[in-house]
Structures are given as structure tokens and as C-alpha cells.
């Protein structure tokens, strides 16, 4: 069984985000890391291939400046190879263009029984790319999958819903998007990290993939304003001296909640 995982390389979410003042897009010029949301997909792919008893896990990623640090992390976890789409022309691409680029990269690897993505990225969280990608690829999909099993050529998944979950069955090839916590991502071993250094990363441009238009030219949107949201007035912060609970009681009394 061959699985392709879409992984995003993002600025460290622990650092405060910033907008580029000339383009009003998120700054992505520092070092990028593997989006933690994608580590679940990588782990799930490795487990499914392992259970199937053969095949491999490949990665596709779109990132500026030929960035590979995040890909190396996923390769160190056990993925075999990667296609990286890196092209200055892609700056400003919208979610639809991103899906088209990723679809072309998935096609370049070819032979996928299953494509996995996270439900949304941690830095942009548009949350539409997985399902857009499925549509471009002409695949059925199960988004928000929280439990996944492969039974022959059928995918069986539990899919998150507003008030519980659905059991969904779908023939392969298919695409799934997985929520955080579906599996416990492994830490790359020292051996894995060393091996990852020599695993193949095929770096291509949007032109190589034949996707056009891309970037600002392909985006049907324009940022028109960036403003500070109104701040909440500062509240009363008190140290608990054993009577902190009483503060809460009188606060609730004032609001007539009790």
C-alpha cells in the first residue's frame, strides 16, 4: 500500500506570528518546521503501510526558499521520499491554487492508494485544501477522520460530526484528512535522523508541474485592510489568599447568575 502525505512547513507556532507589511501575508522567511498537525498524518501513514505489510510513505510539500527542515523531520520518522514544490511565483497563492499544486505533486509521485492531509494547518487554517485536493484528484474523501482502518481495498473511518461521529466506508484510492490526536506520532530515532539526510527530495517549480496561473495572479482575492481588533477592558486580577472563591461568588451574584 502506497500512501502520500501532504505536509506543511510552517514558522514555529510558539513564536509570535507577524504580517509582512508590504504584502500583508504571514511572514514565512525564518526557519520553518514540520506543522505538528501533519505529524499525525505521517504517523498514520507509517502505521497503515506497516499493517499492509508493504509499500511506502511519500511526502508532498509546498514551501518557499527550497525549505526542507520540516520534510527531513517527516523523513526521519520513516517516510521514504518527498516532492517539494518551491517557487517564488507561488507567493500569494490561495487555497485553490495550493490544492492544484499539491495535486500535481501527488500525480508526479503517482500510484497512491491513499492521500492523507491534516484537517487544517496551524498557521493558515483555511481548512479547505484537503477536500479541494480530493476534488482536483477526482477522489472520494473522508474529512475529519478520527479512526481509520483499511480492509482490503476499502477504507473504514470514523468521521467527526457536530454531535458525534459517523462510520464511513469508501473504496480506495481515496483521500482522508485526520484530526490531531488520532495516533501518537513517534519521535524520530537517531538512526532515522541520519537516514533522512540521504533520502531523495525532488525539488520542482510550479512550471515543472504545469500549474498556471499561481501566486497573486491566480488568487481571486486581495487584502484590503488590516486593523487592530478592539481590546477588552482590563479586568481585576487577584492572588488567591484562600478567599479567591468568594470573589467569584460575588462576581456571579452581581451578574445575577446566582
Amino acid at each position: 500500500m502506497n500512501v502520500i502525505v501532504c505536509v506543511k512547513q510552517i514558522p514555529d507556532p510558539a513564536l509570535p506570528g507577524a504580517l509582512d507589511s508590504s504584502t500583508n501575508t504571514l511572514k514565512r522567511d525564518g526557519k520553518l518546521i514540520l506543522d505538528e498537525s501533519d505529524s499525525y498524518g505521517v504517523e498514520m501513514a507509517l502505521q497503515l503501510v506497516d499493517k499492509a505489510g508493504g509499500g511506502e510513505v511519500s511526502l508532498v510539500s509546498m514551501a518557499p526558499n527550497g525549505e526542507v527542515s520540516g520534510l527531513r523531520t517527516a523523513l526521519a520518522m520513516g517516510a521514504a521520499k518527498a516532492v517539494l514544490v518551491s517557487d517564488p511565483a507561488l507567493q500569494g497563492s490561495d487555497a485553490l491554487t495550493t490544492a492544484r499544486v499539491l495535486a500535481a505533486a501527488v500525480g508526479r509521485i503517482g500510484g497512491a492508494d491513499l492521500v492523507i492531509a491534516a484537517t487544517e494547518s496551524s498557521d493558515g487554517y483555511t481548512g479547505t485544501v484537503p477536500e479541494q485536493l480530493a476534488e482536483v484528484l477526482g477522489l472520494p474523501s473522508v474529512t475529519f477522520a478520527k479512526h481509520v482502518e483499511i480492509d482490503g481495498s476499502t477504507l473504514k473511518a470514523s468521521r467527526q460530526t457536530e454531535d458525534g461521529y459517523d462510520e464511513v466506508e469508501c473504496p480506495l484510492p481515496a483521500l482522508i484528512s485526520v484530526t490531531a490526536g488520532v495516533v501518537e506520532p513517534r519521535y524520530p530515532s537517531f538512526k532515522g535522523i541520519m537516514a533522512a539526510k540521504s533520502k531523495p527530495v525532488d525539488t520542482v517549480t510550479a512550471g515543472d508541474l504545469g500549474v498556471d496561473p499561481v501566486g497573486w495572479a491566480g488568487a481571486g482575492q486581495q487584502i484590503s485592510d488590516v486593523a487592530k481588533a478592539p481590546e477588552r477592558a482590563a479586568g481585576e486580577i487577584v492572588e488567591d489568599d484562600g478567599e479567591g472563591f468568594a470573589k467569584i461568588v460575588s462576581f456571579l451574584e452581581n451578574l445575577k447568575v446566582i
Binding site: 480530493a134 476534488e135 477526482g138 477522489l139 472520494p140 474523501s141 473522508v142 468521521r159 460530526t161 454531535d163 458525534g164 461521529y165 459517523d166 462510520e167 464511513v168 466506508e169 469508501c170 473504496p171 481515496a174
Partner: peptide, 13 residues
């Protein structure tokens, strides 16, 4: 083929 995924059971928490 895009429409091949089917719900076989629904669970309400």
C-alpha cells in the same frame, strides 16, 4: 468516483 464514500452508521454522543 468522488461520491463513493458512504455513511454506514451514525453515532450521537
Amino acid at each position: 468516483p468522488t461520491g463513493a464514500a458512504m455513511v454506514v452508521a451514525t453515532h450521537v454522543e
